[in-house]
Amino acid sequence: MEQGTVKWFNAEKGFGFIERENGDDVFVHFSAIQGDGFKSLDEGQAVTFDVEEGQRGPQAANVQKA
């Protein structure tokens, strides 16, 4: 798993971006967030995640709040 920081996340649209430790950004969809209840992330929040190849390039999977 990688570690990163939430760059931004739009809860209304259900997606955002995580900044990886290497400085690259990776797309995150709310469906990739682990846990119960409303799935959202806060700007600046530390997270761990896997990276999978999506239809439009790399995207975060198995996102967990650190």
Rank of each mutant, 00 (worst) to 15 (best):
M1E: 09
M1K: 15
M1S: 14
M1P: 12
Q3M: 12
Q3F: 14
Q3G: 08
Q3Y: 14
G4I: 01
G4D: 01
G4M: 01
G4P: 01
G4N: 01
G4A: 03
T5C: 10
T5K: 13
V6E: 01
V6N: 01
V6Q: 00
K7E: 02
K7S: 05
K7Q: 03
W8V: 03
W8T: 03
W8M: 04
W8D: 01
F9M: 03
F9N: 00
F9Y: 10
N10Y: 07
N10A: 08
N10T: 07
A11M: 11
A11Y: 12
A11H: 14
E12C: 13
E12W: 15
E12P: 08
K13W: 09
K13T: 06
G14M: 03
G14V: 02
F15K: 02
F15A: 02
G16N: 00
G16E: 00
G16I: 01
F17C: 05
F17W: 08
I18S: 00
E19M: 15
E19G: 14
E19C: 12
R20C: 06
R20T: 08
R20V: 08
R20Y: 07
R20E: 02
E21N: 13
N22D: 11
N22I: 11
N22R: 12
N22P: 08
N22C: 12
G23V: 05
G23S: 08
D24L: 13
D24M: 12
D25C: 09
D25M: 13
D25I: 11
V26M: 07
V26K: 01
V26P: 00
V28M: 07
H29C: 05
H29P: 03
H29S: 04
H29Q: 03
H29D: 03
F30A: 06
F30D: 02
F30M: 06
F30N: 04
F30Q: 05
S31F: 05
A32E: 05
A32T: 05
A32L: 03
A32K: 08
A32G: 08
I33E: 02
I33V: 08
G35F: 09
G35L: 08
G35M: 13
G35Y: 08
D36M: 11
D36C: 11
D36R: 11
G37I: 06
G37F: 07
G37N: 07
F38L: 09
F38A: 07
F38I: 08
F38R: 09
K39A: 07
K39V: 07
K39E: 05
S40L: 08
S40F: 13
S40D: 07
S40T: 14
L41G: 03
L41F: 05
D42E: 13
D42K: 15
E43M: 14
E43D: 10
E43L: 13
E43A: 15
G44E: 04
G44A: 05
G44I: 02
Q45P: 01
Q45N: 07
Q45C: 08
A46K: 15
A46Y: 11
V47M: 02
V47L: 04
T48C: 08
T48H: 08
T48P: 01
T48S: 10
T48Q: 08
D50N: 14
D50L: 12
D50T: 14
V51Y: 06
E52F: 13
E52T: 13
E52Q: 11
E53W: 15
E53H: 12
E53C: 10
G54R: 09
G54I: 04
Q55G: 09
Q55A: 14
Q55T: 13
Q55I: 14
Q55V: 14
Q55N: 12
G57Q: 04
P58M: 10
P58N: 07
P58V: 09
Q59G: 04
A60C: 05
A60Y: 01
A61E: 06
A61Y: 11
N62G: 05
N62F: 07
V63R: 00
V63H: 00
V63G: 00
Q64S: 11
Q64E: 07
Q64G: 08
Q64F: 10
Q64P: 01
K65D: 07
K65Q: 09
K65F: 10
A66L: 15
A66Y: 13
